[in-house]
Amino acid sequence: MQQLESPQRSRGLAVAAKPDRRPLLVDRLGLWFSKSSTIDGLWIGTTESKPYPALRRVEDALQLTKRYDTLNYFRITRNLDRIWVHLLPSGQAHYDRSLNACTLDERYVLNETKTLEQIASTIVHEATHARLEGWGIQYLEAMRIRIESICLRRELNFLAKLPDSEPLQDEIVRALEWCASDPDFYSDKNFWWRHQEGEVETLRYLNVPNWLIRWAMWLIHRRRQRASVSPES
């Protein structure tokens, strides 16, 4: 990316799943109905419609990774079971522990301003989350700054091997600086609010009627008011 992404849509920063969370029924159905392919044992799927451009972009990003960085490519295929493109309310991407999947937001992958190098770097980031989870390092609130910093440094390592990647490397350096300067961004409470606001954005993307969007916004506002007066807030 040519500039640092807004914190509202930062990749790798989704709602933290409980360590023992099982795949939701809606996720299992989504996987079942996804268009998919397999590359070196890694399942890649998408819920989009034909001609599946997001699926092709992810496949091309993986081939780019394999060409320039065999170590990170090996870690992706070893540590992840899936890369799944669908609509994510709370971020451009996140690691879903229940599916052992790098999940990518359809809008992010299809954004013409995003390059294959950026998509590949994002996958490297989420595969690092998977690797850390495999070592027993859970994405708990107190650990999130350190975990995100590790994943961003892995992106830097990957990007350094790509030609003409200096602007992308600069972006990651700025992200590391911002990561350390705003620890409250990683709180459970703020994750939850961003998820709810992202659901409104997703409704707009799906062209849901305005009356339903207004109702969702009113509901979020009411929840914020209650949380602000709660003794536990």
Rank of each mutant, 00 (worst) to 15 (best):
A216M: 13
L110R: 07
D40C: 04
R131C: 10
R67N: 13
D20T: 13
F185T: 06
F158A: 10
E155Y: 03
L156D: 04
A175Q: 12
N79A: 08
A142E: 14
T115F: 04
M143L: 10
Q169Y: 06
P231G: 06
S181L: 07
S49H: 01
Q225G: 02
Q2D: 14
G45H: 10
T77F: 05
K50V: 05
P89C: 05
V109G: 00
T46Y: 00
L132M: 14
H129M: 11
R11N: 09
S233M: 11
F33P: 00
M143W: 07
P23W: 10
A216S: 13
L156A: 06
F185D: 02
L110H: 01
C179F: 04
D27E: 14
R154C: 05
S98A: 15
T70W: 08
L156S: 09
R154A: 11
R107E: 10
L219S: 12
Q225L: 14
G12L: 02
E126H: 10
R214C: 05
A142W: 05
G45Y: 07
K66R: 15
T77N: 02
R223C: 02
Q92G: 12
E155P: 01
D184E: 13
R154S: 09
E5G: 05
T115G: 03
M1F: 10
C102W: 03
A120D: 04
Y139H: 10
